[in-house]
Every structure is written in structure tokens, then in C-alpha cells.
Amino acid sequence: MSSPSLRQLDIFAQMVAAGSVARCAEDMGLTRPEVLDGIAALEMRLGYRLFDDPGGEARLTPAGRKTAQAMMQLGGDAPAAVDASAADMPPLQAVQPTPPRDAIILAAPAPIFGHFQDALAAFEAANDDIAISIDLHVHSANDAAAALASGHADIAYFYALEEPAAPPSRYGWSEPVNLYAGSGHRLARADMVGRADLAATPLLTMERSNGMRDIVEAALARGRASFAMAALESDNMLEIVEALRDGAGCFAAFGPLARDLGRMSGIRRLALDMPLPAIEIRQAVGPHLADKPAAEALADYLFL
């Protein structure tokens, strides 16, 4: 799972193991606010909630449970077993299903998994002989093609600006790319912002290893939106938000992250005088799907 920072994943893993913010903070030598900020930054980055009441008993949400299992099963930063006395639930290893008759691997960027989490839960509830595993590494068409060809995914969702030559895919929906700045920034106060304005403005970006950065940069390049320099590179969204409010530059976002930024006080979406291309979310399936009717059914179900 390359998108969130290693520190955020470490806090998440320790929170799963500890079962409470107090124990997590003690184990990591952090303050409670530092732990809660780390979880909040990770949830904002992923686009969905990991814990119910993180400041209290810190119970994993269904999406949080899937995320933790994905980290364990796919070689990410694996959380230790959940402390049953702290979290009032059996250890994480114990709640993983026994090998079912049908297993489906869905590969998708984390925000896309967040979009589907309710549908996935409903599908599993209606088909108790099927288990769905999540791979959060896939972002691009190349990622999806490799995962499907190797059998590491049955269904893959990925970002694109247009239909790629490979893998064969179908269009799901589009997410507009927007630019944001602190409400006191000169561009946020402007009635209209053009390319020349952007060229004199620093850009805040995600880290280079982040799979979402590539698609955002491709959209900006296609829209001929260039910036003075990269003023900050960070996957800690709370750090990005603070820098925006301080007037350090502007930040490009789409999907759940853009919606979260649009609701925050002290941050405004820029009124651009030129369109930026939207990000397409596309679905591709493995060549062996005809031999896995459950996976084929899930691929169609997610399009209903």
C-alpha cells in the first residue's frame, strides 16, 4: 500500500493492535492528539473511515477491517493481532474467513474501494461462500494490466484520462480535478484564475511514490497548467491543509479528497478560466473471469 505515508500506516497498525488511542499513544511514545491526527490524515487520504469513535474504543469499521486484512495478506505493513480485551473483538487473524469456495481479489485505489465498500459488504452478505480480498496498490492502467495478467486480481479499477489500449476496460465514472488554495490567498480571492496566475504560484503535491500524483500531474499537463515550483511534497493531508491555510500555494485534488477539501473552512476552490480534464475511473477484468462466475457477477454488480 504505497499511497499513505509509512508513519500513518504504522499508527494505524499500532492502533489496531492496541485497540485504543491511549494505549497506542503509550506504545508509540506519542501524544493522543498525534495519534488522532495521524488516523485523521490517513482517513482523509484514503477517503473513508477506518475506526468508529477513534478517541474511544476504536472499533474498526468494515472498511477498516478490509484495509487491515489487505495490509496483512498482500505484504504491506501488517498490523499485529488485535488485543481482544482492548477492542472487544477477536484477534484480526481469527476473524479472517476460512478458505471459501470462491475467493475474489478486487484491486483498486483506496478512494475507489471507499466508494464501493457498502456494495462489497452487501455482496458478501448475500453470498456467504464468497470472500473478497482487497489490493490497494493499483492506480494506473499499467498497474491493472500487470495485476490481472499475473492473477493477482480478478477485477481492477484504475485511473485514466481516456480509454487505454490495454487492458480492455469499461468506463465507470469521472471525477473533476479542482485546484484549492487558502481563503486568504490572492488566487482564492480572484474572480477568475488563468494559466499565467498558476505559473507564478507554488504547487503543493503528494509524494513522488504516491500513485495518485501521477494521474493528477497528467491531468494538469494536459490542461497546460504549470506551476512555479513544488513548495511541499507530503502524503500527510493535515500538513497539506495547514500549508494551504498558511497561503503556501495551491493543491490539485479529485474524488473524495476534493470533496473533503471543499467542505473545510479556510480553503477555497479556485475559479479557473480553463477546463482541466476529468479523471476517469475504469474497470477491467482478468482473462480467466469466465472460469470464476462469482467474480463476473461482482464485476457486473458494481455497475448496477
Rank of each mutant, 00 (worst) to 15 (best):
V35K: 12
L6M: 08
Q8T: 07
I39W: 13
E43F: 00
L30P: 06
A40E: 10
A17D: 08
L6W: 10
G29F: 00
G38L: 11
I11F: 04
A13W: 05
L46C: 05
L6E: 06
R23K: 14
A17E: 13
Q8N: 09
Q14H: 12
G19Y: 05
R7L: 09
C24A: 15
G19N: 05
V35I: 13
M15V: 08
M44Y: 06
L9A: 03
E26K: 11
G19M: 06
I11G: 03
Q14N: 12
I11D: 09
E43H: 01
V16G: 09
A17M: 08
S20Q: 11
S20I: 04
A22D: 15
M28P: 06
Q8C: 04
D37V: 13
A40R: 15
A25L: 01
C24P: 07
L46T: 01
D27P: 02
A40C: 08
R32G: 02
A17H: 08
M15A: 10
G38P: 06
L42Q: 10
L36S: 13
R45N: 14
L36F: 14
G29V: 01
I39G: 13
A40N: 09
P33L: 05
A13T: 05
T31F: 03
A41V: 07
Q8K: 03
E43W: 00
Q8G: 09
L46M: 07
F12W: 00
M44V: 07
A22N: 12
M44I: 08
L30R: 11
A40T: 12
A25M: 03
L36I: 12
R45L: 11
L30N: 02
L36E: 15
L30W: 13
C24H: 02
L9M: 10
G38V: 08
S5P: 00
M44T: 14
G29Y: 02
M15I: 05
S20P: 04
D10G: 04
M28R: 13
A40K: 11
I11R: 02
M15H: 09
A40P: 11
A22R: 15
A18F: 03
V35G: 08
C24T: 15
D27V: 05
D27C: 04
L46D: 00
P33Q: 06
G38D: 07
A22E: 15
A25V: 04
L30A: 05
A40Y: 06
I11S: 05
A41Q: 11
R23N: 12
V16H: 01
V35C: 10
A13H: 02
S20M: 03
G38M: 03
F12C: 01
F12S: 00
I11V: 14
D37I: 12
A17N: 07
A25N: 04
L46H: 01
D10R: 07
G29Q: 01
G38H: 02
S5Q: 04
R7S: 03
V16L: 07
F12D: 05
D37H: 15
I39N: 15
D10A: 05
P33I: 10
L42I: 00
R23A: 11
G38Q: 05
F12M: 03
M28E: 12
D10Q: 09
E43R: 08
V35Y: 12
A41C: 12
A25K: 03
A41H: 12
A18C: 02
A13L: 06
